[in-house]
């Protein structure tokens, strides 16, 4: 392996920009995160296990990861559909629809949570019709899932859209002159070409959902063992001055989300293996 010094780059400033990047990431990301680890390191092993593996906490992990993954998947599918419609068709009001997609980014999450809760509560506009049918959304797992889907949508749309725009129409034409049906063209040509960006969108939506707090606490009802998400549990512990318990849970969340994101990254790398050299 040649060191960067051996192979001279014509782009100047490698040392400076790398130094800056590392210092910046260290200050903004690593220092706060390592504080969590340092706090936790002061605990005995027994205390740690009690803090992170009590039944109430386990239930919260299950809800947070389960609902976030489900929301990520749903967003991947429907985000693709939205991006497809926005790129491929022109219709009146397209720009407005395009702007609507970003709304979940801009809205304070608490506002979104209150709006969703009032819609889906048993007396709300939508809940009023769903509850008699046996669908309870507000204050259940479904409610958490709905809130997380809402906030995650823009990620998939905004990552897929530019890639879809760049796809040459000739690729689809080539596929059709070779005798492929429309469905074959979509599944064998378009989806594989879009897969890396879909995975990126999924990872972003999933990560966002995992950390989401504001919009969920209103609609979930926060019942321990049932609809309590991990970020809420951490806040609860903090309010009880149980700083160590809170950071211990945070460490578990950190490590497991890191592993999950790493896996998604590997999958993404595999899906773009043809981008050789």
């Amino acid at each position: 392996m040649a060191s960067p010094r051996d192979s001279r780059s014509i782009l100047p400033g490698f040392g400076l920009s790398l130094g800056f990047t590392l210092a910046y990431l260290g200050l903004i990301v690593l220092v706060p995160l390592s504080a969590a680890f340092i706090r936790t390191a002061g605990m005995s092993w027994h205390d740690f296990v009690v803090a992170v593996a009590s039944p109430r906490v386990i239930a919260a992990y299950r809800l947070s990861f389960g609902a976030s993954l489900a929301a990520g998947f749903v967003n991947m599918v429907f985000g693709l559909v939205v991006a497809w419609v926005l790129v491929r068709y022109s219709f009146p009001g397209k720009r407005i629809v395009d702007a609507l997609v970003d709304l979940p980014f801009a809205l304070p999450t608490a506002v979104a949570g209150i709006a969703l809760t009032s819609l889906y509560s048993p007396h709300g506009w939508i809940g009023r019709w769903l509850v008699p049918l046996g669908f309870k959304v507000a204050f259940t797992w479904t409610g958490v899932f709905v809130a997380l889907t809402f906030i995650g949508l823009p990620f998939v749309v905004r990552t897929v859209q530019p890639v879809l725009q760049e796809l040459e129409p000739e690729i689809e034409e080539a596929s059709s002159t070779l005798g492929a049906s429309r469905i074959q063209t979509v599944t064998r040509i378009l989806l594989p070409e879009l897969m890396p960006s879909l995975l990126t969108g999924f990872a972003l939506a999933f990560a966002r959902a995992l950390g989401e707090y504001g919009s969920v606490v209103f609609i979930s009802g926060n019942m321990p063992m049932k609809t309590e998400i991990v970020p809420l549990l951490i806040i609860t512990k903090l309010e009880q001055y149980d700083y160590r318990g809170a950071t211990a849970i945070a460490v578990v969340m950190l490590v497991s989300s890191f592993v999950l994101l790493l896996l998604i990254n590997l999958l993404q790398k595999w899906s773009r293996r043809y981008h050789a050299i």
Binding site: E168, E170, I171, E173, A174, S175, I189, E193, Y274, H275
Partner: peptide
Amino acid sequence: HYALFKHM
């Protein structure tokens, strides 16, 4: 511009 399938 060839229109080859890049992922194949």
